[in-house]
Amino acid sequence: MSIFSRLFAKPFATVDGATARRIVEEGGLLVDVRSIAEWNAGHAPAATHLPLESVEQRAHRLPSGVHLVTVCKSGMRSASAARILAAKGYEVSSVRGGMSAWRHAGGRVVNKNGREGTV
């Protein structure tokens, strides 16, 4: 690996929805970094909500030794969150395509009342 590659390599993986689901099914934790309004409209039932603006201050609340999978609407905010969490020593992946990719891969999405949600 060249010095350029090492300097600019991402400290986290980017995964598709199916891979994200597999990681979560194998004991990983899905961390939804969207706004409260987005979360209320639709989120994965087993996800933990940690809005992007809270990740830096509240990362210590996440379990250590667990593969974290960050998700947002499109993948941009989840990549930012993954970068922050990786810098804090977490094993983390970001979902490319966000919640739409999660749903397309067969992941459930519920609203704040536990009914079918939207993304």
Rank of each mutant, 00 (worst) to 15 (best):
A47W: 01
A41H: 04
S80C: 05
Q57E: 12
A81L: 05
G117H: 01
S94K: 01
R34K: 12
S80V: 04
T48R: 15
G114D: 10
G106S: 12
G27R: 06
E91K: 13
A101S: 15
G106P: 10
Q57P: 00
H60C: 07
N113S: 13
T118P: 00
G97I: 04
P11Y: 03
R21C: 04
A47T: 02
I84F: 03
A86L: 06
V119D: 02
A101V: 09
R61D: 15
V95I: 10
K73D: 04
L29M: 13
L68W: 06
M1D: 13
D32C: 09
R83F: 07
A79G: 14
A18I: 02
L29Q: 14
E53R: 14
L68K: 09
P11T: 10
R96L: 11
L50K: 04
L52Y: 08
R21M: 11
G42Q: 01
L68S: 07
L30C: 04
I23E: 00
A86C: 09
G27C: 09
A20W: 01
V69W: 00
S93C: 08
C72P: 03
L52S: 09
L68I: 07
S80D: 08
F4P: 00
A9P: 06
A47H: 01
R22A: 13
V109T: 12
A41G: 03
I36N: 08
G114M: 07
S100N: 14
V110D: 03
G106A: 11
R22V: 09
A59I: 07
